[in-house]
Amino acid sequence: MKQAYLMIALSGLYVSGWTEAYAQDQESVIENTRTQEQLTSTLEQSKAHEWGLKAQEWQRYRELMEGPLGVYSPGIDPLTALGMEARDSEEQKRYTEMQAHAEYKRITKLFAYQNAYDDAFARLYPNLLPVNLIGADNTHQSSPATAPARLMVFVTIDCKGCVERVKRLQSADQHFDLYLVGTQGNDELIRGWANKAGIDPKKVRSRDITLNHDGGRWASLGDGGSFPAVMRQVNGQWQRH
Rank of each mutant, 00 (worst) to 15 (best):
E20N: 10
A21I: 07
A21Q: 14
D25Q: 14
S28N: 14
I30S: 14
E31P: 00
N32H: 11
N32T: 12
Q36M: 04
Q38Y: 07
Q38L: 07
S46G: 10
K47R: 14
A48F: 02
H49N: 11
E50C: 04
L53C: 06
L53A: 06
A55L: 06
E57I: 00
W58V: 00
W58N: 07
Q59A: 10
R62H: 08
M65N: 09
E66D: 14
E66C: 05
G67P: 01
P68L: 00
L69V: 13
L69D: 09
Y72H: 11
G75P: 00
P78N: 04
P78R: 01
L79H: 07
A81I: 03
G83Q: 07
E85A: 09
A86S: 15
D88N: 15
S89I: 09
E90S: 10
E90P: 01
R94G: 00
Y95Q: 04
M98V: 03
M98N: 04
Q99K: 15
Q99L: 04
A100H: 11
H101R: 15
A102V: 02
K105D: 15
R106D: 12
I107L: 12
I107M: 08
K109M: 08
K109L: 08
K109Q: 12
K109C: 03
L110W: 04
L110S: 09
L110Q: 11
F111A: 01
Y113D: 15
Q114L: 01
N115E: 15
A116C: 00
D119V: 11
A120L: 10
Y125F: 13
I134W: 08
I134Q: 11
I134V: 10
D137A: 05
D137Y: 03
D137H: 14
H140F: 10
A145L: 10
A145W: 07
A147C: 01
